[in-house]
Computed example of a mutant assay.
Amino acid sequence: MPVIAPITRTHHVVFRAAVLSFKESAPRGRAPVSLRVGVPDGAHECHVVQPGQALDQALRTDIAAALLQRTAAQHPHRWAWLTRVGTLALHDADVLWSAAWYAACAEADVEVPLAVVTRAGWRDPRTGVGREWTRLRRRSGVAP
């Protein structure tokens, strides 16, 4: 299910939480690419791509399918986000993991949106819809 404009309030809240969580937990410029499935700021499953790890498209799809399967019972309304360093400009990893993600979703007959998340914002790699912040901070008095 691609994210289309105008985005829903739910998409905004969920992906903003994913950006904040990544920004607060990842060292600037040194976080490996990770595929996460579940709920940002909540329970989720994760696959971290190790530096130099050779992954072909079939293995990426198997990883995505495993994450889908592990989160099926826990999170009926789950989300997927690919975290990486850099800008929100389209990156090779975005294309490769997006293709794997949506292939796994098609095999499982589910629709789970995917966003690319960096320290600056998020973007749907299929539609380009997203949000970017200059100075994103947690709102005071609001629980994560």
Rank of each mutant, 00 (worst) to 15 (best):
W122M: 06
L114T: 00
A104V: 09
G86I: 03
A93Q: 12
V112F: 04
H91I: 01
T118K: 00
E107Q: 15
W97D: 04
A115H: 00
E111A: 06
W101K: 07
L96I: 03
A103M: 07
P113A: 05
V112T: 04
R123C: 13
R84N: 06
S98K: 09
A89D: 15
D94Q: 10
R84K: 09
P113V: 02
E111Q: 09
E111T: 06
L96Q: 12
V116T: 14
R123I: 09
L90Q: 14
A108L: 05
R84P: 00
Y102P: 11
A115R: 00
V95L: 14
V116C: 11
E107P: 03
V95N: 14
A99S: 14
Y102N: 09
W97K: 07
W97S: 08
T83V: 07
V85Y: 03
T118W: 01
V85F: 02
A108G: 06
V85L: 02
S98L: 02
G121W: 01
A108H: 11
V117Q: 05
A89T: 15
R123Q: 12
C105S: 11
A100N: 06
W97Q: 09
S98M: 08
A100V: 08
R119W: 13
G121E: 03
V112S: 04
L88P: 03
L90V: 10
L96E: 11
R123S: 12
T87N: 07
V95I: 11
A99F: 08
V117K: 01
Y102L: 02
W122H: 05
P113F: 02
L88G: 03
V112H: 02
D109L: 10
A120K: 01
V85H: 07
L96V: 03
E111D: 06
A89I: 12
V112A: 05
D109M: 11
D94Y: 04
L114V: 01
L114I: 01
G121I: 04
A115N: 02
V85W: 01
R119N: 14
L88V: 05
D109Y: 12
A108I: 11
A100H: 06
V117T: 07
T118I: 07
V95G: 13
A104S: 08
W122F: 14
E111R: 10
A89E: 15
G86Y: 00
R84M: 02
A120T: 15
A115K: 00
G86S: 09
V116A: 10
G86D: 10
A89G: 14
A99E: 13
A103V: 09
D92L: 08
A89F: 12
L90W: 10
V95Y: 11
V116R: 05
Y102D: 05
W97V: 13
A106K: 15
A100C: 10
A104H: 04
A89S: 14
D109W: 12
T87D: 13
D92F: 07
A89Y: 13
A115C: 13
R123D: 06
A115F: 00
V112N: 02
D109P: 06
V85R: 04
A120D: 14
V112L: 11
H91C: 02
L88I: 08
A104R: 06
V95S: 15
T87W: 03
V117N: 04
T83S: 01
A115W: 00
W122A: 07
R84A: 03
A100L: 05
A103I: 08
D92H: 10
A93P: 03
A89N: 15
L90N: 13
R119E: 15
L114Y: 01
L90R: 15
A100S: 11
